[in-house]
């Protein structure tokens, strides 16, 4: 549980696509904060991950 081996970004949810560069991970665009919150929550439940906040408007769904 506490070990970091399984840590892995499953998805990124953002309102500003320019904040995310590079590939390897699906990026979901949201129109507003409410939608971003909702998408993140649903993705986390579906993928079994946890939502983390980078505090710049980018949310990550990470598998621990």
């Amino acid at each position: 549980m506490d070990n970091g081996l399984r840590d892995f970004i499953l998805a990124i949810v953002t309102m500003d696509y320019s904040l995310v560069q590079g590939g390897g991970c699906p990026v979901f665009l949201a129109e507003n904060a409410t939608q971003q919150n909702k998408i993140s929550m649903l993705l986390a439940r579906i993928l079994g991950g946890i939502v983390h906040d980078l505090e710049n408007g980018v949310y990550l769904i990470v598998k621990h």
Binding site: S40, H52, D53, E55, L60
Partner: peptide, 17 residues
Amino acid sequence: KSLLMVDDVVIMNVGLE
């Protein structure tokens, strides 16, 4: 902000409001 704390110990980052 997004960091969950127990007094001055950082526990984890929580994204959802």
